[in-house]
Simulated assay, not measured.
Amino acid sequence: MEDYKVATAMSPTHYLDHAKSFLKQDSTSSLISGGIAGAVSRTVVSPFERAKILLQLQGPGSNHAYNGMFRSIARMYTEEGWRGLFRGNTLNCIRIFPYSAVQYSVFEKCKQLMVQWSPRESNMCTDGERLIAGSIGGIASVAVTYPLDLVRARITIQTASLNKLNKGKLAKPPSVIQTLRDVYTHEGGFVALYRGIVPTTLGVAPYVGINFALYEKIRNYMDASEHDFSNPVWKLSAGAFSSFVGGVIIYPLDVLRKRYQVASMAGGELGFQYRSVAHALVSIFKTEGFFGAYKGLSANLYKIVPSMAVSWLCYDSLKKAFSEW
């Protein structure tokens, strides 16, 4: 009986020690830190995210109600109030937590395996290995969360003034469950939930690879120099620069991803229907010109640059806090 009392009295400390040990594991800390960093960063830039999507979805058949990033945000606020600025953000955070968690943890695990499997004197990955690890992380994160990304794109435009989808009336957007049910029932079953995953993967994989590899390149350079990379300003700057470079390079595929996700809505009244990735790219450049493939780029950069800057700052800070706890 006395032993039981002692064990019970010690259990809170015992569990706390186990929790600390669990969080100090690299895979666990990467997973949790990545998830929190993703949710925080996306909430910060939610208005820019929605403005970018609306600009991307204005195909040749739309009325181009949205023009310019800040004017688009102002229009959203005027028509829908402050909630319009964060339309779909709750779903985005639900999606982005596992998305970002998987992305960071797979990236770290791939680097670890590459070091273990490749005979070398240094325990550091090469730039090429970081690029590959980041790309694998991007592919894994897309595979895990893609149906939620598709639903978020659908909900984002439900109340927007995009051609005939909204004839001057602010409709209440359907729920996540209802949207999933409608897509599954009316658009081809389980396969329909992954419509657009090919262009999404083609865009996300190189973007994450470039972003992660470039950030770590800058971080390693700063660590080797006399500068103190622990300063939040350096982390924010490195995250912003790496996301800017990756975002500009792969942006046309991001446009393609969003259009694939909503192309079957309203019988194609948004002005585009694509048979394949190649057909989509040719159609965009042919009917909308070179800049058609970069429609919404400025809004995208306003979104991803501060988003990834905040994400990297949160991720590195949380990882350090878990390791020192």
Results as ranks from 00 to 15, higher is better:
313 L>C: 02
205 A>Y: 05
84 G>T: 09
165 L>H: 01
104 Y>H: 01
210 I>E: 09
75 R>S: 13
103 Q>W: 06
284 I>Y: 04
70 F>N: 07
214 L>I: 09
116 Q>L: 13
211 N>G: 07
267 G>K: 10
64 H>L: 12
98 P>H: 00
299 A>F: 01
163 N>A: 14
163 N>F: 10
254 D>M: 15
185 T>Q: 15
134 G>R: 04
262 V>Q: 03
9 A>R: 09
117 W>V: 11
75 R>H: 13
92 N>Q: 02
324 E>I: 15
218 I>T: 07
4 Y>I: 15
315 Y>S: 01
157 I>G: 01
292 G>N: 15
46 S>L: 03
2 E>S: 14
153 A>M: 01
210 I>H: 06
143 A>Q: 07
139 I>W: 10
60 P>I: 10
55 L>D: 09
111 K>W: 06
184 Y>M: 14
176 V>D: 02
6 V>A: 14
66 Y>G: 03
263 A>E: 14
204 V>A: 13
301 L>C: 00
312 W>Y: 14
120 R>L: 04
214 L>S: 10
142 V>E: 06
106 V>R: 09
89 N>I: 05
256 L>G: 13
318 L>K: 02
172 K>C: 00
213 A>S: 08
264 S>H: 13
209 G>W: 05
302 Y>T: 05
140 A>E: 03
241 F>W: 12
202 L>N: 07
84 G>S: 06
120 R>C: 10
116 Q>E: 12
117 W>K: 02
7 A>K: 15
20 K>I: 10
208 V>D: 15
32 I>W: 07
32 I>S: 11
272 F>Y: 15
279 H>K: 09
323 S>P: 05
21 S>L: 14
158 Q>G: 05
90 T>N: 02
92 N>G: 06
191 V>G: 08
272 F>R: 13
311 S>C: 10
220 N>V: 14
311 S>K: 10
186 H>P: 00
235 K>A: 00
232 P>T: 00
140 A>F: 09
84 G>W: 08
49 E>S: 10
268 G>N: 12
59 G>N: 02
217 K>R: 15
81 G>V: 01
141 S>H: 03
58 Q>C: 06
240 A>F: 07
172 K>W: 03
128 G>W: 12
280 A>P: 08
86 F>T: 09
219 R>Q: 04
182 D>G: 12
234 W>Y: 10
228 D>Y: 04
190 F>K: 14
134 G>P: 08
102 V>C: 04
23 L>C: 03
230 S>K: 11
45 V>R: 00
118 S>T: 15
6 V>M: 06
103 Q>K: 08
265 M>S: 01
36 I>K: 02
223 D>K: 11
3 D>S: 15
139 I>M: 02
186 H>G: 03
304 I>G: 07
22 F>T: 12
90 T>G: 00
195 R>V: 13
233 V>E: 07
16 L>C: 14
273 Q>D: 11
243 S>E: 06
285 F>K: 11
37 A>C: 04
89 N>C: 08
319 K>M: 07
